[in-house]
């Protein structure tokens, strides 16, 4: 007879990291569905392709680093990264764009830093930013609303056989940035009238919101980051809109356009690269939101989730430095890290 000897506790939750990740992936499904509905099959193709690339790169580099490939692949973190990046890319993205982005995300942003749990930056966002900087044209061409391409067209776009130009149009955020203050132009683009945040976009964002609420209800994420994130966008947007509604979009527009909900519930909540404590996460997310609004309103790029998240990833240790909780039995919360 043999007995197990181990340290306490002897019981634990049945959950595991892989299951966590899978839950997050499931929660993106409504968003993916709406994206497909609004913009065609491009997103689905992209996501699948991204997953294949990610798993391949991950396996390759795990092997190169002498790690147990099967064990690490089971945590589904590479898949999640691929899904998030695939969702963030325009549906018109050709295969090589996804390949470069996902490869960079997995190899440089994750594995070179030591794999899961060691990456200081959100890998998906690193890949996204890389693509945005290197291929600004391809990255800002979205399918014009209401003109969702057929499956075959999407496939042709993916393989590069069909030029993007014919189908693409600017996103509402882009349009607003270009024509801010010019009411007639904005009206002609259907932003001020009709749908709340440009055709299709509010549905996409609502779908991601739904998925996010599911995650909170399953206690996969806490409310701190999404709440801070959305408040960070909405508060300055509201103030500015009150001051000059012609120049600044209303908060609802901000919350329901671009990658706001995807960022709030799926990107910024990546725990590895976020701040540590509850308070820290609140501050972290709030600053991301503010930064997004600032870049959207005054910056050169139409959307800013990726930049903001990366910048705050960079500041997360600094936030942690000041936001440690007060341990039971101590008068004051700790400051600092306790070492060089």
């Amino acid at each position: 007879m043999s007995l197990i000897t181990s340290t306490s506790p002897h019981a634990s939750v049945k959950n595991n990291t892989g299951a966590f990740m899978r839950q997050v992936i499931y929660a993106t499904l409504p968003g993916l569905a709406v994206l497909t509905w609004q913009f065609g099959w491009g997103s689905v193709i992209n996501v699948l392709w991204a997953v294949a690339v990610a798993v391949g790169c991950e396996a390759l580099f795990l092997k190169a680093r002498g790690r147990h490939v099967g064990f690490y692949l089971k945590d589904f973190s590479a898949v999640l990264t691929a899904v998030l990046l695939g969702l963030a890319l325009p549906p018109t993205a050709p295969w090589w764009l996804t390949l470069v982005g996902v490869g960079f995300a997995i190899i440089v942003a994750k594995q070179l830093y030591g794999g899961l749990g060691m990456n200081p930056f959100n890998p998906a966002m690193v890949g996204y930013v890389l693509l945005l900087i290197s291929f600004p044209v391809a990255m800002t061409q979205w399918v014009a609303p209401g003109e969702a391409p057929s499956f075959m067209q999407s496939l042709q776009l993916f393989t590069g056989q069909l030029p993007v130009d014919g189908l693409s149009g600017a996103t509402p955020l882009d349009t607003f940035r270009t024509w801010a203050g010019n009411e007639s132009e904005l009206a002609s683009h259907g932003i001020l009238h009709g749908d709340i945040a440009g055709q299709g976009w509010e549905w996409v964002n609502l779908a991601f919101l739904l998925g996010g609420l599911y995650l909170i209800s399953r206690k996969i994420i806490t409310w701190h980051i999404p709440a801070g994130f959305l408040a960070g966008i909405a508060a300055p947007a509201f103030i500015a809109w009150q001051i000059d509604p012609a120049r600044f979009a209303d908060p609802l527009f901000h919350l329901l356009s671009g990658g706001a909900m995807l960022g709030a519930f799926f990107i910024a909540t990546d725990p590895v690269s976020a701040a540590t404590s509850r308070m820290g996460r609140l501050v972290y997310a709030l600053l991301i939101g503010v930064l997004i609004w600032v870049i959207r309103s005054f910056g050169g790029y139409p959307d800013a989730v990726a930049f903001s998240v990366l910048l705050l990833n960079l500041s997360a240790p600094f936030i942690d430095y000041y936001t440690q909780p007060r341990t039971y039995g101590h008068d004051k919360p700790n400051r600092g890290t306790g070492g060089a």
Binding site: M1, S2, L3, I4, T5, S6, T7, R67, H68, F71
Partner: peptide
């Protein structure tokens, strides 16, 4: 004192044979 656990990818427990039961 307790040992440092075996690390990532390892089970933290061990088994021992018991005879006197």
């Amino acid at each position: 004192g307790w040992n440092r656990p075996a690390g990532i990818g390892q089970r933290p427990d061990s088994r021992i044979e018991v005879v006197n039961l």
